Computed example of a mutant assay.
Amino acid sequence: MRWLAALAWVFVAGGALAQTDPADAARAAAQRLAEASEMLEAADGARNRVKALTETIQAYQDGLQAMREGLRRAAIREETLSRDLQSREDEVAQLLGVLMAMGDTPAPVLLLHPSGPVGTARSGMIVAEVTPALNARAADLRQTLEEVTILRALQQSAVNTLRDGLEGVQEARTALSKAIADRTDLPRRFTEDPLKTALLIASTETLEGFASGLNEIAQDEVPGSLPGIEDRKGQLNLPVDGRILRRAGEADAAGITRPGIVMVTRPQALVTAPTAATVRYRGPLLDYGNVIILEPQAGILLVLAGLDVVYGEAGQVLPGGSPVGLMGGATDMDDVILTGTGQETGARQTETLYIEVRENNTPVNPLEWFRTDKDD
């Protein structure tokens, strides 16, 4: 919890730069982690433990992202103040010279004037007018120097706490993988036939062809379907925290277009099921990399492609919000160091997740199903 305290400190210091109150965001992130930790301690069965660990990882991810943003703001503010001081070097030197001269000279001597009492009176009036302005400039300079000192100390402390946070989230990811492997209480709708799956993969060249043969790999499938989700159309949460990089039909750098969307996210980001669904397939597929295909209801397939690690087994029914995989990317602790310009050198959104929705094996625009108010 020590790193969360520093998180709050970062946001309080950078609050003047934000349009919204960053301290509230810091407190919210800390509260999420505290609640997740309580869930973890109270978890009895493997399924509860998976849910608690999922919440913990998501809280860590939110907190780390918020802290990076606060650290970035602090670095930019510190650079701005330093440049301002550099641009005012001559003025600052003159001000310090005047203040030092005034400090070393006895007050009666300052008020004496060679022209006599009238000159002395005039000089006293001038000094009385100038002194408040000099004091104000000195106070402004002192405040700027103090802020620069605080920001520099804050940045160093925040980098250390970011490292601690990265270690904590990595421990939670490891624990999640083990908890999922130990989980035995999920219902199953069918058992996968490995031989038929291999034959299907070898005989198809398109996602459409593979999807059309998914029913062939299922053995002893329980009839029926999960409850419909039509009433939630447009309200499903996106499976990963990130932003939309390419929309349906938009060409990539190679000129290739796909009917799904591409989201960009951070390395090792957790991917979750937007709704309760049956796992129809998981594993490598064509040129999509690691894929998991979910069936929230009969006739609707949700394809998530580009994961590094995939959780679950074909035939399992996953609750909504269940972890289905992790994105790839390096987890080097050095990815949180900032450059002198206040820009992140690592931990950026570099991983891409492809999302496709198929209705009766025909692709539809995924944005019709997901709530994207954060990404538009």
Results as ranks from 00 to 15, higher is better:
Leu112Arg: 08
Ser123Asn: 12
Thr120Asn: 04
Gly119Val: 02
Pro106His: 01
Ser115Pro: 00
Pro108Thr: 01
Val118Asp: 06
Ile126Pro: 06
Arg122Lys: 14
Thr120Ala: 12
Val109Leu: 11
Met100Leu: 15
Leu96Ala: 14
Leu99Gln: 12
Gln94Asn: 15
Val118Gly: 00
Asp104Pro: 00
Thr105Tyr: 04
Ala121Gln: 11
Leu112Gly: 06
Ser115Leu: 08
Gly103Thr: 08
Gln94Val: 15
Pro106Lys: 02
Thr105Arg: 05
Val109Ile: 11
Asp104Asn: 09
Val109Cys: 04
Gln94His: 15
Gly124Asn: 02
Leu111Asp: 07
Ala93His: 15
Leu110Gly: 04
Pro108Met: 05
Ser123Ile: 05
Leu99Cys: 13
Leu112Glu: 12
Gly97Asp: 12
Leu111Tyr: 04
Ala107Thr: 07
Thr120Ile: 00
Leu112Thr: 09
Leu111Phe: 07
Arg122Ala: 13
Leu95Trp: 10
Thr105Glu: 04
Thr105Lys: 03
Ile126Cys: 11
Met100Ile: 13
Ala101Asp: 12
Leu112Asp: 08
Gly103Val: 03
Ala101Trp: 10
Ser123Tyr: 01
Ala121Asn: 12
Leu96Asp: 14
Thr120Gly: 09
Gly103Pro: 03
Pro106Val: 00
Leu95Asn: 11
Asp104Ala: 09
Val118Gln: 10
Thr120Leu: 01
Asp104Gly: 06
Leu110Asn: 03
Gly124Met: 02
His113Ser: 03
Thr105Ile: 06
Pro114Gly: 03
Leu111Val: 05
Pro106Asn: 01
His113Met: 00
Met100Phe: 13
Pro106Ser: 05
Ser123His: 10
Thr120Phe: 01
Thr120Cys: 06
Ala101Asn: 13
Ser123Trp: 00
